[in-house]
Write a protein that binds this DNA or RNA. Structure first.
Lengths: 342, 342
DNA sequence: TATCATTGCGTGCGCGTGAACGCAATATGT
DNA sequence: ACATATTGCGTTCACGCGCACGCAATGATA
């Protein structure tokens, strides 16, 4: 059976309240007595009981705010699912979670939403941020007021956020390069399509891919990086253009979105077999291209955990006072083929 | 704020004890009153508070037994880690977990260990079983006595176990086949090395692989399945023999253990580049072959979750009375390359 | 010396739930 | 008719913890 405060109190010959003050450094206690109690507690292997603590804290309950921008994409649906599961879990321990979904990326409205969450009594906030100076300042402001902020999916570099939960995008580009190098026959050419030139994640993936692929296959030329601005029509146009120009194109790496456009172009030109596609956009919508064999690999972010973890980390910080172990909590880089989808 | 029994009691005009009896079907209550209370609780969205419940149940505490056979393998180390994490989590809610590790597979001693766990007061048991009639009978006996049993990693078919947590071995063979078909050049031959002919999992993987690979690549001949009985020396001998016989061997699928033996043989014959190896034995020990490029893919079981989930499922059943959602809780089929190891 | 602040510790309440107990009102058996 | 179950419900305690409060002893100040 687990050790309780009462048992420690008896062992130390003091009252439970004294043990409480000793272990939680509440002051108003003789230093020697406190030391002795801490030693005894340590020897007995004391671990505070969550149930007792949760009940005692029930009055001034913990509230966690979750702010998700661009919540209407298939990927974010996974994220939201994870966040809702985490909510169910911590609410059963008496905490409260407010999930606010925004349709698009808008720094101004994100700042506004953060302030609203604070007014609603949030003790901690998790958000998917955009790269914006005002948002960064707001995050710092919250951190100063002792309201921890966790970024997920995307990060705000150099801000006072507690930690970041998401993918190691550079490494995810390297995974794609390794796979591409494995499946391409000798010679031929590879096209890289990214999303936005200034998106930090897209840039990282692209560079990770380029660097690693060059190391692995010097027989294959990598064509210039093109940008589709996460748009399928754009991706389709780019693909068609390159197919016209390079008839020995054998691989396409898609660092962001645009799977449908690329596949449509390949299909129309009858090049689906010759050109092998690897994409980073693992969504329920794109999975069917895997099933049909039009994409070889999808490299995924574990969206579910990206929603789940930030809430749990905030809860543990606010409830147990436990800091996250790492500043960067990278989620698994998942490789999906048509066979391991479920 | 969450709804409490007291609030429901006030809304229904009865006492808290009556609400308790109504919601938990304890009898000794007027059926009409019980119905009304249940309706009100439903409307108010009542969810029992875990903290309160855990505290109240602290006296006759839940004890979960975990029995792991062949605990000294690297894979099982992951499993044990998952089980220990789950233990830490449920112990903070007042439950108790006893983890018993056995060095080898031995049905007789497993039966014995189960009885000991029962005597130690376990209300539920998770175990890695071997396929044995006596063990199966013991599992059924426990189930009859209302002590739920969950199998993990390996299953006992047709027994009264509550559910099975582990890999879909057939599908994992298909994943290997898909990858192999992707990376092998035209023509050539493939060798399949399995572990034990009568192991259910090994058989499943092998057959899944054979069936799918035949569908995908009719230009490549698959040689007979050989068995290494999970032994590296045996695997090495088999590989050397086949290399002598078939100089156009280009792929080896290793459905069970033996990675070191196979790699050693290939190295000595200077065939590491020509012959591409895919294995199902994802362990920390084998990861270095991935890093060195001697294995292309490792297809993994998520050992951590195989240890974590059974404990949590038993806890939820014993604590909340919640049955597992599915009889087969398949863990993710993980594809590892040298780039997504962390 | 009288008054008040500070230090060191014990006590008690409340959180939500399960379960034992208790007490009427009614039902059953003799 | 009376003793004894059974039913239907309220009451109370225990669980482990945080925290407010209270009391005594000591120290500081007037």
């Amino acid at each position: 059976m687990a050790v309780t405060l009462q048992q420690i109190a008896e062992a130390a010959g003091v009252s439970r309240g004294t043990v409480d003050r000793a272990l939680n450094n509440r002051g108003r206690i003789n230093a020697e007595v406190a030391d002795r109690i801490r030693r005894i507690a340590d020897e007995m292997g004391y671990q505070p009981n969550r149930a007792g603590r949760a009940l005692a804290m029930a009055k001034r309950s913990i509230t966690i705010g979750v702010l998700i921008q661009a919540a209407n994409t298939p990927f974010m649906a996974n994220v939201i699912e994870g966040a809702e599961d985490a909510r169910a879990e911590v609410e059963r321990l008496g905490a409260k979670v407010i999930i606010r979904k925004m349709e698009d990326f808008d720094a101004g409205r994100a700042v506004e939403a953060m302030r609203e969450l604070k007014k609603a009594g949030c003790n901690g906030i998790a958000l998917v941020p955009v790269d914006d100076e005002r948002l960064k300042e707001t995050v710092n402001e919250f951190a100063d007021e002792n309201i921890p902020v966790i970024t997920f999916n995307s990060d705000i570099e150099g801000s006072g956020r507690l930690c970041f939960v998401g993918q190691d995008t550079w490494q995810s580009g390297r995974v794609a390069a390794g796979l591409m190098a494995d499946i391409l026959p000798a010679d031929g050419k590879v096209l890289v399509i990214s999303g936005y030139p200034k998106s930090y994640g897209h840039k990282n993936r692209t560079n990770g891919f380029l660097k690693e692929f060059a190391d692995l296959r010097d027989d294959i030329q990598v064509l210039d990086v093109q940008y589709d601005f996460d748009d399928n029509q754009m991706a389709e146009m780019i693909t068609k253009g390159m197919l016209r120009e390079y008839e020995d194109l054998t691989g396409i790496y898609l660092a962001a979105s645009g799977v449908e456009g690329v596949c449509k172009a390949l299909e129309e030109q009858g090049m689906s077999n010759q050109v092998k596609v690897i994409s980073n956009d693992l969504t329920a919508r794109n999975v069917r291209y895997l099933e049909e064999g039009k994409i070889r690999f999808l490299i995924g972010q574990d969206g579910y955990r990206q929603g789940y973890e930030p809430v749990m980390l905030l809860f543990e910080k606010l409830f147990d006072g436990k800091e996250p172990e790492k500043e960067f909590a990278y989620t698994e880089i998942v490789i999906k083929t048509r066979y391991n989808l479920a």
